[in-house]
Amino acid sequence: MSLNPVSFDRPLAHEPRLSAPYVPGKRDKRFWTDAECDIIRRYFPLGGAAACLLRLPDHRTPQGVYCQAKKLGVKIQGAPSARQRHRATPELDERIRDGWRQMDAGRKGAVAELADRLNIPRWWLTKRMTVLGLTLRHKKEPRWTAAEDALMREVPLHRPDLAARVFREHGFRRSPMAIVVRAKRLDLSRRASRPDLSATKAASILGVDSKYVTGRILTGELPARKT
């Protein structure tokens, strides 16, 4: 008795080609041609990506133009050859301190004007002033008083803008957002004044989960209406 070898390899069925057949001399449009590279070399230094896009095919994007210009080593005329680094020196720090003492720190644009006088970027000046401790202390809102908490139970919390107006009439300056946050911390409902309770409020009174109340509403055991 002889044993014959058996192959378990399955024959591969011929599948149709999914990609387009290769055509000699034809390239995909995502590749840059020599003519497009010449456009970048000629127009990018003077007009940037905008000037190149006017002469390139529609599928080219500004990001693609910038990337290709970087690969070709083409730069806009007037651009610095290398990034300028600003280093802090004792003399510069003293000039910054003198400028800080003289300027109105609360006025808008004062820091930008100082940066122009010192011939340094504004972002660098802001970071350096933070390191030197030349910053303004932000004014925090005062703590809530007992009188304000009592007034919170009288104002229409469902209208924060109107509640803020009532606070101003009583001599308190609170923003509508501050009133909303305070109502949440005091566990005050912001619904309009009416005897109805929300499902969450009813659950907190009964000492059960809000889903328990919602389930009883859906089954009809608890009367409820949508407001």
Rank of each mutant, 00 (worst) to 15 (best):
N4T: 13
F8A: 10
D9R: 10
R10N: 12
R10G: 05
P11H: 14
P11W: 15
L12C: 11
E15N: 06
P16S: 13
R17M: 15
S19K: 06
A20Y: 11
Y22S: 13
V23Q: 09
V23F: 08
R27T: 06
D28V: 13
K29N: 15
D34L: 06
R41N: 00
R42K: 12
R42S: 05
Y43Q: 14
Y43C: 07
F44E: 02
F44V: 03
P45T: 01
P45A: 02
L46M: 14
A49N: 07
A50K: 07
A51V: 01
A51D: 12
C52E: 01
R55H: 05
R55M: 06
R55P: 00
P57V: 06
D58M: 10
Q63S: 13
V65H: 02
Y66G: 09
Q68D: 00
K70E: 09
K71I: 08
L72F: 03
L72N: 02
K75Q: 08
Q77L: 12
G78Q: 08
A79V: 11
S81V: 14
R85L: 12
H86D: 14
H86F: 15
R87T: 13
R87F: 15
E91F: 03
L92Y: 06
L92K: 03
D98N: 15
G99H: 04
R107F: 02
A110N: 04
A110K: 07
L114E: 04
L114A: 00
D116F: 04
L118N: 03
I120G: 07
I120S: 00
R128Y: 13
R128F: 05
M129D: 04
T130M: 07
V131H: 05
T135M: 07
L136I: 11
K139Q: 11
K139T: 05
K140Q: 09
K140L: 08
E141M: 06
P142D: 06
W144H: 04
T145F: 06
T145P: 07
A147Y: 07
A150G: 11
L151Q: 15
M152H: 05
M152L: 15
R153V: 05
R153W: 00
R153I: 08
E154S: 11
E154Y: 01
V155S: 03
V155M: 04
R159C: 04
A163F: 05
A163Q: 00
A164M: 08
A164C: 14
F167M: 14
H170W: 03
H170R: 15
F172N: 02
P176H: 05
A178Q: 09
I179T: 08
V180K: 03
V181C: 07
V181N: 09
V181W: 09
R182F: 02
K184G: 14
S189D: 07
R190N: 07
R190W: 02
S193M: 14
S193Q: 06
R194V: 13
R194G: 14
S198G: 12
A199D: 03
T200H: 15
T200M: 11
K201R: 10
A202E: 06
A202Q: 12
A203K: 01
I205C: 11
L206H: 00
S210R: 09
S210M: 03
K211P: 00
Y212C: 12
V213N: 00
V213C: 01
V213K: 00
R216G: 01
T219Q: 11
R225K: 14
K226R: 12
K226H: 09
